[in-house]
């Protein structure tokens, strides 16, 4: 149970702050849920009940809103959320292959999150960065003009980052100067 777990005390204190600011107005339910998800990472039933209680909105209505909007998740997410943009501009530039490639490399089939809770792979509708298509966001970082080939490198970069090593930012790629990884000759 979330509430009884003493490690969550700080999180609930933050949530109460959000509720203090927006919770009196039932019209701000979406804002409160966004705040709650930012704090806890996801919105389990227990949290929905807590918010329902504090805002005096039936839990069925809270659940109805949570399940309606794509941004809300009722399951915990990995440390890194990989969001593959599947908007049209990205799609025609091969975003589906990139999405598949992430799933392949992380051995994800029906589930979205790896067992070690490191990566969650999702797809999103247009994030409006069509100039960089195809685009993937990993938490706050935006990776544009990606190819399916670069996926494994990207995954390794974040795995290394978790292991305490910083990755180097290569910056924007100038056309014609892109350095592919040298082929490994037999």
């Amino acid at each position: 149970m979330l509430l009884n777990d003493p490690t969550n005390k700080e999180k609930f204190r933050k949530l109460d702050e959000v509720l203090e600011r927006y919770g009196r107005d039932p019209e701000q339910l979406i804002r409160v849920l966004q705040g709650a998800q930012d704090i806890f990472g996801y919105l389990p039933e227990e949290l929905q009940a807590y918010i329902s209680d504090k805002m005096d909105i039936p839990v069925s209505a809270v659940n109805g809103v949570v399940t309606f909007y794509a941004l809300f998740s009722t399951k915990p997410r990995g440390k890194y959320t990989v969001n593959v943009c599947l908007g049209t501009a990205c799609y025609v530039q091969g975003a589906q292959q990139i999405h598949d490639s992430f799933k392949n490399h992380l051995a994800l089939k029906d589930n979205d999150t790896t067992e070690d809770m490191l990566f969650t792979v999702r797809s999103s509708r247009c994030i409006g960065a069509c100039g960089l298509a195809p685009v993937v966001t990993i938490n706050e970082d935006v990776h544009g003009k990606l190819t399916a080939k670069e996926v494994s490198k990207l995954i390794n970069r974040y795995k290394k980052e978790t292991a305490g090593e910083n990755h180097e930012d290569k910056g924007p790629t100038r056309p014609g100067t892109y350095q592919e990884e040298a082929p490994t000759e037999p």
């Binding site: 107005d25 039932p26 019209e27 701000q28 339910l29 979406i30 804002r31 849920l33 966004q34 209505a61 109805g64 809103v65 309606f68 909007y69 794509a70 941004l71 809300f72 999103s124 509708r125």
Partner: peptide
């Protein structure tokens, strides 16, 4: 703030969503 639903661009849906529903 919206929360990721394309249909909310439709005006009557938008109004519902703006009211937290």
């Amino acid at each position: 703030l919206g929360a990721g639903a394309f249909v909310c661009g439709e005006e009557t849906a938008l109004l519902k969503s703006a009211m937290g529903q």
